[in-house]
Amino acid sequence: IRVTEDENDEPIEIPSEDDGTVLLSTVTAQFPGACGLRYRNPVSQCMRGVRLVEGILHAPDAGWGNLVYVVN
């Protein structure tokens, strides 16, 4: 998935696990201090948080898609 520190920055590609999840530790390896991800909902244009359970980030209902995710 494509992740950036700010919406206007160049994104970095972060690998997902075989089950489609992303480990928070993978994100923090590239973005120290990150505690989660958010993205701009293409329909509402509002920022939406990615579900985080026990250090594992779960894809939105429509999958990770071609969105750019921003670190929290």
Rank of each mutant, 00 (worst) to 15 (best):
E17D: 03
V70Y: 15
C46K: 15
N72F: 09
E5S: 08
L52T: 07
T4V: 13
L57E: 01
N8G: 13
T26H: 12
V50K: 01
Q30D: 03
S44E: 13
I14C: 06
R40D: 05
F31D: 04
L37G: 01
V22N: 00
P42K: 10
T26A: 13
G65R: 08
V70H: 09
T28W: 10
V22L: 13
D61E: 11
C35A: 12
Q30V: 14
T26D: 05
T28G: 12
D61Y: 07
L24A: 02
V70S: 08
I12C: 09
N66S: 12
D9I: 11
E54V: 00
G55D: 05
L24Q: 04
E54F: 03
V70F: 11
V3K: 05
L52R: 06
R51Y: 07
Q30W: 13
P60K: 00
T21Y: 07
V43E: 04
I14V: 10
R51V: 12
M47F: 14
V68M: 10
I56M: 07
I14R: 02
Q30K: 15
E13T: 12
L24V: 04
V50S: 00
Y69E: 06
G33F: 08
A59K: 05
S44G: 11
L23D: 03
P15W: 07
G65T: 03
V50E: 02
S25Q: 10
S16M: 13
C46L: 12
L37M: 05
R38S: 14
A29N: 09
Q45N: 15
V50G: 00
G36K: 00
Y39K: 04
R40I: 15
G65D: 06
D61I: 08
N8I: 07
V3E: 01
G65W: 02
S25C: 07
V3T: 00
C35H: 10
D9K: 14
Y39P: 01
R2A: 06
N66E: 12
G49K: 14
L23A: 12
N41G: 07
S16A: 12
I14W: 00
G36W: 01
E10V: 11
P60I: 02
P11V: 09
G33V: 04
V22S: 04
H58W: 08
P42I: 05
E54Y: 08
N72I: 14
A29I: 01
L67F: 11
V71R: 03
I12S: 03
L52Y: 04
R2Q: 07
N8Y: 15
N41Q: 10
Y39C: 02
V70I: 14
V50A: 02
W64H: 02
N41K: 06
L67K: 10
G36C: 02
Y69H: 06
D18I: 13
R48A: 15
E54I: 02
E5Y: 05
R40G: 04
A62I: 15
C46G: 13
R38M: 12
L23T: 05
R2T: 06
C46N: 08
F31I: 06
S16N: 09
P42Q: 08
W64V: 01
V70W: 08
W64K: 00
S25N: 08
E54D: 10
R2K: 15
W64D: 11
R51H: 06
L23S: 10
